[in-house]
Design a protein around this nucleic acid. Structure first.
Lengths: 228, 228
DNA sequence: ACAGTTCAGTGATAGGTTCTAACGAAAATT
DNA sequence: AATTTTCGTTAGAACCTATCACTGAACTGT
């Protein structure tokens, strides 16, 4: 697939396309670092991610990693980008099969439960001083777009569509170029917030000890949102 | 040697105010530490809380704080306890005036927006290895109880109560001693998850740049939940 | 083929964090 | 007044991120 960003800027040469051995090695080490980072995040959370520990696991000394990532924040940004990319691709692949909102929701839930820290990395408590770069918000827009498509399709298939919301007729800088009616915007927003509401509390462990099946609550919320 | 400590431990009752001068001094320093901690959390988030920085702000050196809090986690636990306590009291005070679910929801939203990091501290991404002590989960149960009361009252006042959910009839270890019908349990859960869904995404800044008023989305969700 | 350049990885170092340990001084108790 | 308790200090261990100067290997141009 997208082999690399070799052709992007600096390297002006035909051999940059094929990838020099150096570039391939570099990409491999970067991937290995990210792999260890994910493993560390999955066990101890994003806040406990340590460049030093990763370097030690890989058998090299700490400062070596700075050849591959400018800073710890830079690595985390890359992981966030990967997480967004994975979610966008997963949802897009599911939506491409003509799936309705229900299976899209379960795809989201499965993706989140597959690696809770990955979900919380992008939708959980943000790092205070952190600002996502442009391309990351671009992927986020991608996700909203596939969600909007699914919502528009879901509304079109209903005999009794819900009443149009009042507050979304104006002001819709998001989805600016999207031909979705206000009702679809509202459905997408409520879908997002309600699914996230259940998911985030579930993944954060706030349902622990309450003795009910969060999958059933998720399903109930979904049913209220997209009745069949 | 244990004579005075026995009194200190046991006497956390009504006259905790009037202790020995030592105890009052100790309590005051503890409060001052927590105050600085809150200020620091409000500006930089909980993950950036630094005992050293607090000590420097108070004009004393780092290790001195360990006379008042056993560890950084211990301080954070105390802040979590305070946050839960504040939310429980705020909600309880509002509920005591006979307020309905709508104003209770706005009380919650106002409390959260008053100090976003405080809300995210208790409902945001949890620290991986952290386990809340017993009394903290007790306060959390208090919150659920007032919410349940309000939900039961809201249901009783409706002409057409929503259908009872299927999955909450059994399994309800939470609210074990609470005389609420399954419909109230379901309403409380959906209230919680939906309000948290909107609030957490809003506080985390995920609505930034979307150009709609999150207050209206909150109100719309609330209206769908507790129609008038 | 040799010289020059680029680059991965190293150790040393600076400054930050939490937290422990030992010590001096002040305050409360006996 | 003497003793004990407690507070705050400095010193230091074990981490962390991040920069710097340097070695040694690999690639590049002539």
């Amino acid at each position: 697939m997208a082999k690399s960003s070799a052709k992007t800027d600096a390297e002006t040469g035909p051999q940059a396309d094929a990838g020099t051995p150096r570039e391939r090695y570099r990409a491999q080490v970067r991937a290995e670092i990210k792999q260890h980072a994910w493993q560390q995040i999955a066990t101890a959370g994003a806040s406990a991610l340590s460049l030093n520990a990763i370097a030690k696991q890989m058998g090299m000394s700490g400062p070596a990693l700075y050849r591959y990532f400018a800073s710890r924040d830079d690595l985390i940004t890359e992981l966030i980008r990967e997480a967004y990319r994975s979610l966008a691709d997963t949802l897009h692949a599911t939506a491409a099969t003509g799936a309705d909102l229900t299976v899209l929701a379960h795809t989201l839930r499965d993706w989140a439960r597959e690696d809770p820290h990955r979900y919380l990395l992008i939708y959980g408590t943000p790092v205070p001083g952190y600002h996502a770069p442009q391309d990351v918000t671009g992927i986020s827009d991608e996700i909203m777009k596939t969600l909007l498509d699914a919502c528009a399709a879901s509304l079109a298939a209903r005999k009794t569509p819900p009443p149009a919301p009042a507050f979304l007729a104006e002001h819709r800088e998001w989805a600016a170029g999207h031909p979705a009616p206000p009702a679809a915007l509202h459905l997408a927003l409520t879908f997002w917030t309600r699914m996230h509401g259940v998911l985030s509390l579930e993944l954060a462990g706030h349902f622990a000890g309450m003795g009910f099946d969060s999958a059933l609550l998720f399903a109930a919320e979904l049913d209220a949102l997209a009745p069949r």
